[in-house]
Amino acid sequence: MQHLYIDRYAGLDSFIHKIDPRIKVITFFIFILYIVLTNPFSYLSFLLYGLVILFLIAISRIPFPFIFKKTLAVIPFVVLIAVFVPFIKRGEVLASYTLGSLRIEFTREGIVLFWAIVIKSYLSILCMILLTSSIKFTSLLKSLEKLKIPKLFIMIASFMYRYSFLIIDEAQRMQRAKKSRAFKNKKGLSAVKMLSNIAGVLFVRSYERAERVYLAMCARGFQGEIKTLDTFSIVPRDIMFLVSIFATLLLIQFV
C-alpha cells in the first residue's frame, strides 16, 4: 500500500543533502536558537532569516510547494495558541470591549508578542522541515543518537517509524474487510461503535506484534540496548557549512 513519507525528498543529491547529519542537526538547532532569541522589533533580521532559509531550500532542490504545504499543517496550532495572547498580556490598552460582565482588553504588548510568536514559529518550522526533508529519517535518528539524545527516545522513534506504516496497513485492511461485509453505511452511534471496535482490535494486534518483535530481538541476542554502527564522517565541507551559517547569523545580529 502507498504511504506518504516524511523523508520523501531525502534521496536527492544536493549540497544540503550531503552535509553530515550531525552537523546539519547542530546547524539548524543553532539557527532556531537565533530565531527564537531575536528581539521581536528587529523586523529586518526576520526578513534576512527568511531569505537565508529560502536560499537554503533553493539549493537543496526540494520543491517549494512541498515545504510550504507542510508548514500549513503546523501553523493552525501556533495561531490557535497565539491568538489569545493579545487579550491576556498586560500593558498599554489599545481597545477594550465589554461583553456582559466580561471585560476584554487588547494590548499593544500583546500584539507584539502575537506577531513574535507567529513569525518565530513559522521560521523555526521552515528550518525543521528543511532539516527533516533533506535527511533520511534513519540518519536523523542515528545522528541524534550520536549527539547523546537518550537511547530510549531513539528506540521509541525508530520503532514508531518502522511499524507505523504496518499499523496503518492493518487498519486499512480491516476497514476494507468491514466494508465488504457491511450491507449499508451505518451512521451515528453504531458507526462510532464500529470504529471503537476497530481501534480495540488494532490495539490488541499491535500488542501481540510487540511481543513477537521482542522475541525476535531476544533471539538475536538483545540485552536491553540497541547498538548500531557509526557510518558518518565529517569532511571540511561540513565545517564550512556550519561556520558560514553561523557567520551569517552573527552578521544579521548587527544589521
Binding site: 529519517f137 534513519t138 535518528l141 525508530s158 517509524y161 518502522r162 506484534r209 525476535a216 530481538m217 540497541i226
Partner: peptide, 8 residues
C-alpha cells in the same frame, strides 16, 4: 515484519 525491526 517481526524479524525485521530495525529501520534499515
Amino acid at each position: 515484519d517481526d524479524q525485521l525491526f530495525m529501520p534499515t
